[in-house]
């Protein structure tokens, strides 16, 4: 029979998740885990509900940035005005995950550790340079978000490890981020393509740093260095945007599946990169 535990401390959770004999799975929002459970594909023998651990529910400003608990729901992020003002791209990515009802539960921790190549929040977190705290038998470590997912459904976490929270750095004075995704409908679909752009300008309006990450076009979300480089040193004009789009398309390695074709994903990834860069640019200028 499937066990269910709700630890109130990180250490308790580590012990519960580490026990080899019952392959335990961490539960935050459950909007992916329970779909697996109900369809009979869940192999686990135990569920560890992390929502009673205060650290995973906390959302607070820290050193000009933010520390976001892994079990904080998308809805809570959407209602946090100062977070949204600083990192609109990250919040809109989290808020695009599913319907209002899904938003009431879906968490950044779950979205990351479910390790779907099309996860909406992951490209935005990567572009923002977010890091996450991993707790486990070996204690705690803070790693870049992009180091967690290693392939579809696979993470670098070992038995007993789970994500406690996310650390978002301070956004630069003239910084702006944005996330766009393509779905056939206007809601409720899994991203066919996702692109996040985070850039900063200098006083003259020249781009000094740029991070561009893509989702659903490769086995994992990817930081595309060449795309960022295409913007640095430019005023993000048409030529720079065309170079950005070309770089993003070059980095795509998508598959044909029930949601999109290789040609479609590659082409649209470029289109969305250009559009997201313009939004990030406007946001950066408006923050100056």
């Amino acid at each position: 029979m499937l066990t269910y535990n709700k630890p109130t401390t990180v250490d308790e959770a580590v012990i519960l998740l580490q026990q080899p004999q019952h392959a335990a799975r961490a539960l935050a929002g459950g909007t992916d885990l329970l779909v697996e459970l109900r369809s009979g594909r869940l192999a686990a023998q135990g569920i560890v509900d992390l929502k009673r651990i205060p650290e995973l529910r906390a959302l607070r400003a820290e050193q000009d940035g933010f520390r976001i608990g892994a079990a904080v729901s998308g809805a809570e992020l959407g209602e946090h005005a100062t977070l949204k003002a600083m990192w609109p791209g990250v919040v809109e990515a989290a808020n695009l995950i599913g319907s209002t009802q899904i938003q009431g539960r879906a968490s950044l921790g779950g979205n990351l550790c479910n390790a779907s190549p099309a996860a909406d929040s992951v490209p935005a977190l990567i572009a923002a340079g977010a890091r996450c705290t991993v707790a486990g038998p070996g204690g705690r470590r803070e790693v870049p978000v992009e180091s967690i997912v290693t392939g579809p459904g696979k993470t670098s976490l070992v038995s007993g490890e789970f994500v406690v929270d996310f650390v978002l750095p301070a956004q630069a004075a003239r910084g702006g981020d944005a996330y766009l995704r393509f779905i056939p409908r206007t809601e409720m679909d899994i991203a066919v393509v996702g692109v996040a752009v985070n850039l900063t300008l200098d006083a003259a309006g020249v781009c000094t740093t740029a991070r561009v990450a893509v989702g659903a076009v490769a086995p994992t979300a990817r930081l595309v260095d060449a795309a960022g480089a295409a913007l640095v040193g430019t005023t993000v004009d048409e030529t720079a945007l065309n170079a950005l789009m070309a770089a993003v398309r070059a980095a795509c390695a998508p598959i044909n599946d029930k949601r999109g074709t290789i040609e479609f994903r590659t082409h649209v990834a470029g289109v969305l990169a250009g559009r997201a860069a313009k939004i990030a640019l406007d946001r950066a200028r408006s923050r100056a």
Partner: peptide, 29 residues
């Protein structure tokens, strides 16, 4: 007209047997 269809694999098995990928119009569409 716009989004609804069945997707089969080469073994004749239905790939989108749910409302997530059998895309009926939602209110915001």
């Amino acid at each position: 007209a716009l989004n609804e269809e069945y997707v089969y694999d080469d073994q004749g098995r239905l790939q989108n047997s749910g409302f997530l990928d059998y895309r009926m119009p939602v209110a915001s569409d």
